[in-house]
């Protein structure tokens, strides 16, 4: 039986009718056309599908769409624009943390939650925050560097 849900996506409120077994990942990519959220495994093991629900990182490939009713969903498209990128997006570009870029949206959203809660994380805290986000291209080094740089720019870290 289909169900109507109402939620906020990247600051805009939306109503959608979804099947009870519909995955949030598919709703985001197909119904909302927000393709920055990626499919990498479908089993909760790569982090490419990470989105934020009420500011917490969630794997959208394991989340039923009906569960976001009345909640606030943020995807990579919702945190920065061409004119006004998020400091993390800016830092990822500058440090060379984007290689193929397929893991990047999920990586940035995991990092955003970290910095929002803990503006001045240690290297270990950074590593743990992105533990669930696999990257096969970069070796993570420049990603960690990017998160540190963003943390400085966002005022968390002293240079």
């Amino acid at each position: 039986m289909k169900k109507e849900i109402e939620f906020t996506i990247n600051g805009k409120s939306r109503k959608l009718t979804v099947k009870p077994n519909e995955l949030l990942l598919n709703v985001i990519r197909e119904d909302l056309g927000l393709t920055g959220t990626k499919y990498g495994c479908g089993t909760g093991e790569c982090g490419a599908c990470t989105v934020l629900i009420d500011e917490e990182p969630v794997l959208s490939c394991l989340t039923l769409a009906i569960t976001v009713d009345k909640k606030k969903v943020t995807t990579i498209e919702g945190i920065g624009t061409d004119e006004n990128p998020h400091p993390l997006q800016q830092a990822f570009v500058e440090t060379g943390a984007v290689q193929c870029g397929f893991c990047t949206p999920g990586m940035i959203l995991s990092a955003k939650t970290l910095l929002d809660k803990n503006p001045n994380p240690t290297e270990d805290e950074i590593k743990r925050a992105i533990e669930g986000n696999l990257c096969r291209c970069t070796g993570y080094i420049k990603i960690i560097e990017a998160i540190k740089l963003a943390s400085v720019r966002m005022g968390g870290r002293r240079k």
């Binding site: 393709t35 920055g36 995807t75 498209e77 920065g80 997006q89 500058e94 990047t104």
Partner: peptide, 19 residues
């Protein structure tokens, strides 16, 4: 080390991949 020409659109989550 100029930034990658496609880095920004990728970091912004633009629809660039095959799917």
């Amino acid at each position: 080390s100029v930034p990658k020409v496609d880095a920004f659109p990728l970091a912004l989550g633009k629809p660039l991949f095959a799917d």
